[in-house]
Nucleic acid binder design. Structure first.
Lengths: 140, 140
DNA sequence: CTTGACCTTCCCATGATGGGAAGCCTCATA
DNA sequence: TATGAGGCTTCCCATCATGGGAAGGTCAAG
């Protein structure tokens, strides 16, 4: 199976398959006499694994660990679980950061006239106001 | 004021100050006879603006727009508001993606024994199971 | 005048992905 | 059999924002 078909079958682009090979995430594929890489069903299976792990946000370095455990029949599910839990922590931390940004921005946006006047609490905040202006219903 | 002091005062690293100058986000700083960049309070003020915008997750390209509006006394707050709202959309989209990952992972983790046995729904899922195994209280 | 802290530019690396060029391989069709 | 299309190869470059580090110039204090 050529790289294009492996890409199609696994959902990993040919570019990325070569990249994963170059970085050692997956073993180097066999070569045909022509020099073309040659893939079999097991290779595609592994690529699909990588693809799904990427879809869940695992960084490639962590996927390498997961692949190791996957291949190890004497693995402990606790190890897999720990890796996944650590990743969830990372994701939740990122979510919190983003939510904090949204919270600040939402407050500012709510306070912005959004008309043709130049004054705008968003710019005021960026300029240096420590916190969002308190809700001030008495619009001037 | 040297770049180090400007960095200290603005919270933007000297490295990033040079980078912002090189990419045109901020105007080129004046130079002293020695060739050292020279900053004044207005420069630091602008750098702080950039810093705060970065802290709110705005990409540099968008900060360029914000700086333009900030400098324009005839700006319309509606324009600032629109930019901020667009950014919030972006952030919320990212949050949704991350939350979806967390939701899937949480389900899988909850189903994983987390002991010394090798079988693990996390790996099963990565291997290709379409969805997380339904809660199966009858643990074998 | 020396020393240490600071500045300059330039190059490289990150992480995961894509774009594109130059050149070889393969297969089908005229 | 020749030719063309499309797939494959490697290699380089770009992204986005950030940091590290080297080689060399500058400044201020002792």
């Amino acid at each position: 199976m050529n790289i294009g078909q492996a890409a199609e079958a696994s959902g990993v682009s040919a570019k990325m398959i070569r990249y994963y090979e170059a970085t050692g995430l997956i073993p180097a594929a066999g070569r045909k006499a022509s020099g073309y890489r040659d893939y079999d069903a097991a290779d595609v299976h592994r690529l699909r694994f990588v693809r799904r792990a990427r879809d869940l946000g695992f960084p490639v370095a962590v996927i390498a660990e997961l692949l190791g455990l996957w291949a190890d029949p004497s693995r402990h599910s606790a190890d897999v679980r720990r890796i996944a839990a650590g990743h969830v922590e990372t994701l939740q931390s990122r979510i919190r950061d983003l939510q904090e940004m949204v919270a600040v921005l939402d407050t500012l946006i709510a306070c912005c006239h959004g008309d043709t006047r130049p004054d705008c609490p968003i710019l005021t905040r960026l300029e240096g106001a420590a916190s969002a202006p308190e809700a001030n219903p008495a619009a001037r």
